[in-house]
């Protein structure tokens, strides 16, 4: 069991707009080893959902761990989760801890 587990939250973001509307920084081999939300754009699916917040760190996307993923790979996983037509939502496991 990881230390982050007790404070992690699962947030389901419906694809309610044509964009997800978050900016992330971080990834493996950077100062911020897991992607952190730095912006939530108004009018995007994330903003419409109302539960994702700036400063949250993304641990998993649709059950896929972002641990050890470099920035571009993490960004690709999130982009593909938004693009896929298999699901009309994305599940984010996030934590406020950094």
């Amino acid at each position: 069991p990881g230390l982050l587990e007790p404070t992690s939250t699962l947030i389901r973001v419906p694809k309610s707009a044509s964009t997800l509307g978050i900016a992330i920084e971080g990834g493996a081999k950077t100062r911020q080893p897991l992607p952190r939300i730095v912006t939530i754009q108004r009018g995007g699916s994330a903003h419409n959902c109302g539960q994702l917040k700036v400063g949250q760190v993304i641990l998993e996307v649709n059950g896929i761990s972002l641990q050890g993923r470099e920035h571009r790979e993490a960004a690709r996983i999130i982009a593909e989760a938004f693009k896929t037509k298999e699901k009309d939502y994305i599940d984010f496991l996030v934590t406020e801890l950094n």
Partner: peptide
């Protein structure tokens, strides 16, 4: 030797 200081900042991607 602070490991944290040697790691580069990350780029930012808008999704």
């Amino acid at each position: 030797r602070e490991k944290r200081l040697t790691l580069p900042p990350s780029e930012i991607t808008l999704l």
